[in-house]
């Protein structure tokens, strides 16, 4: 286990160096992440300018949900961005090299890219939390804070598992584009808002089918409120384990279909 973590860090570190071969990319990606996610917040603010609350959620509470997404996505981008390279890797037959190294292929894929935009996410996300806690009408105990940290990490696990699962479609689709995964990711963006505003179909889809709601709404609700949403939110770590297992299983099945290239 220790060896695995150490090697994973080594591989990521190597990718940091490789990415810094293209310094401009580093700055562009980090800054654009702040901009993209920041625009989302501005959009929220614009909405709440005209309506004081949505289904009982006030602006700063929604900002907290939003921060959950931004941070958990930041973590997954920073540490497991490699999932998004799977389509190209499979299509070009580049998985061959990974399969001939004595380290689990799945971990090699996940660590094969560092998303520096994740840094931008983290900076913005932490800023949003800092700004929101002052405005949210709530008593902050150490227990709540610990819960928040655990749930953010679990939320990142949900995102990583779902990213992996959807990107594994590459083994079946065989195209060099991660279109399927990307459209699922876009669908997951719905979870940036309190999901009670959606119809039943969408709610079921983002809770049970591809549980994107567990990277934002439910864990945020577990920290902020009471009731069913809170109970579900406390299940986030279990959901994370389930999603990661799904992703790993899809990868294992996919690998047995892998055809390399140029027979």
């Amino acid at each position: 286990m220790r060896r695995t973590i150490r090697l994973y860090r080594r591989l990521l570190g190597a990718q940091v160096r490789a990415t810094l071969e293209y310094e401009a990319d580093f700055w562009i990606m980090s800054l654009s992440a702040v901009l993209v996610q920041g625009i989302g917040v501005v959009f929220l603010w614009a909405i709440f300018e005209s309506i004081p609350e949505i289904n009982g959620w006030r602006f700063w509470e929604v900002v907290l949900i939003y921060a959950f997404v931004v941070i958990s996505e930041g973590l997954s981008t920073l540490f497991t961005q490699g999932a998004w390279t799977l389509a190209v890797t499979v299509n070009f037959g580049q998985l061959d090299a990974l399969l001939m190294r004595p380290f689990p292929p799945l971990l090699q894929v996940l660590s094969s890219e560092v998303g520096f935009n994740g840094l931008g996410n983290l900076v913005l996300g932490i800023g949003l939390v800092a700004a929101a806690v002052r405005h949210v009408d709530f008593t902050w105990s150490p227990g709540r804070i610990a819960l928040g940290v655990i749930l953010v990490i679990a939320a990142a696990g949900v995102k990583i598992g779902l990213n992996l699962l959807t990107n594994c479609a590459a083994f079946w689709l065989r195209s060099p584009y991660s279109m399927f995964a990307f459209s699922m990711h876009t669908f997951g963006e719905l979870a940036r808002f309190p999901i009670t505003i959606y119809g039943l179909g969408v709610r079921i889809a983002i809770t049970a089918v591809l549980p994107y709601a567990f990277m934002s709404y439910f864990p945020a609700a577990a920290v902020l409120s009471d009731g069913t949403a809170r109970l579900l939110g406390l299940l986030t770590p279990l959901v994370a384990i389930y999603c990661l297992w799904l992703g790993a299983t899809a990868f294992r099945l996919g690998l047995s279909r892998y055809e390399s290239s140029g027979h």
Binding site: A14, R17, A18, M100, P102
Partner: peptide, 30 residues
């Protein structure tokens, strides 16, 4: 992978954006 070595003439197994030394050191660690 610990017992076998493969060379594909058509395609590299090195890390594309890293110096050769880095690739070898990563393999050393693995």
């Amino acid at each position: 992978a610990r017992r076998v070595g493969v060379v594909f003439g058509q395609r590299t197994q090195l890390w594309w954006d890293l110096p050769v030394r880095e690739s070898l050191e990563l393999l050393r660690d693995m």
